[in-house]
Write a protein that binds this DNA or RNA. Structure first.
Lengths: 203, 203
DNA sequence: TCATACAAACATACACGAATGTATGTTAAT
DNA sequence: ATTAACATACATTCGTGTATGTTTGTATGA
């Protein structure tokens, strides 16, 4: 097979990842063969094996992608807004949840990670990788609450870990419930009320 | 093979279901073979096929089991307590979440349904069955909020659907996050604070 | 500049095992 | 006598990882 330029090889790699997301979304990770992914990417299985060790490797790479994207956004939200910390956080939550409906790419990601994989067998170890990454982002989220306390927007002595934890559970729960059953939550109508319920009342 | 009494056959069936839950919990649904389940139940694959159509059938039966159990509890909570509707609901939430940690059987169920299956292939149709059942329980949950309004515990005109939805997302999120990463939430310490955050402040 | 060697980036072939569903056999409850 | 409730055997397909083949980009040396 003709050797390609580095750029072309990167392109092939990207095509494989994109194809994998699509195939995983439709068939579930467990029922997607590397042949399915190769075909969807327009290459052969050999190419998939050249770039990735196995299916779990592909899955993990996909997760890295969305984790990085989320972290970027979290950090940018923190540093680039004229809103108060709680307003920043509230807006981030609203936008993140709304993205699930409006951004098909994101919806595929979250559907795959929440509903279309089983965190067993080859994927068993990846949950702890994901968890370590979540701990990282939780700390940053917690820092929003800390800044809010410093600004006097929250009572001194508020438990920032409890607040960050509760917010993660709530937003994660909204996304998960929506993906399980899009008819359960009309995100267009309910995102803001659901998030406001949290930010107006709970804290 | 010796024909058994009806009671013995029911016992075999129960053994298969129990074994399936254990195997699914350890290996994930996708990576559990019917041979694995048969072996764990101390029978052969023939017996599994006698009682169940296929793996999806077993999975669905397991889900029926937990759904019925939850509905019973929801209905009993509603009718048998001297607490106010919101207190009833709050206590139900606390107990349900605490059960995840203390009741291994429940933890296995929720782990299997949230993390160890991929809702694709044979399991694809089962999510909508689960969703229909959830809609049923959501209505009952909503009725707690309605009664609370009637009693004057909540403002007239409160959106009971929003409240029930938000509670489902929150409790589901807590359970999901805990199962993904037991280190993320210390349920012993955090269950009450998390639930109280909701009931004391959000509503 | 050109020739050459190496190997990256694939494509194709090989080898094998696992899991499924169905068919058939067995025995005792009814 | 019939058949429920299994156990065992049969038949097949699918998917995986590894081995091997092909071609051209790239580096190096003359």
């Amino acid at each position: 097979m003709a050797r390609k330029t580095k750029e072309e090889a990167q392109n092939t790699r990207k095509k494989i990842l994109d194809a994998a997301l699509d195939v995983f979304y439709v068939k579930g990770v467990g029922h997607s063969s590397l042949e399915d992914i190769a075909e969807a990417a327009g290459v052969t299985r050999g190419a998939v094996y050249w770039h990735f060790k196995n299916k779990a490797d592909i899955f993990n790479e996909l997760h890295q992608e969305i984790h990085m994207s989320f972290m970027d956004r979290l950090i940018n939200t923190q540093t680039q807004s004229s809103l108060s910390p709680l307003e920043q956080l509230s807006l981030l939550c609203i936008e993140s949840v709304e993205d699930i409906e409006t951004d098909l790419h994101k919806r595929k990601f979250f559907t795959v990670f929440f509903l279309k994989c089983d965190y067993a067998g080859d994927l068993a170890g990846l949950l702890s990788i994901q968890n370590a990454q979540k701990a990282e982002s939780l700390k940053i989220t917690e820092s929003f609450f800390k800044r809010a306390i410093e600004k006097g927007d929250l009572p001194k002595g508020s438990d920032t870990n409890l607040l960050a934890t509760s917010l993660y559970c709530y937003i994660g729960g909204i996304i998960h419930e929506y993906l399980r059953n899009p008819d359960f939550i009309n995100l267009k109508k309910m995102t803001r009320p659901l998030i406001e319920l949290y930010f107006k009342n709970m804290i």
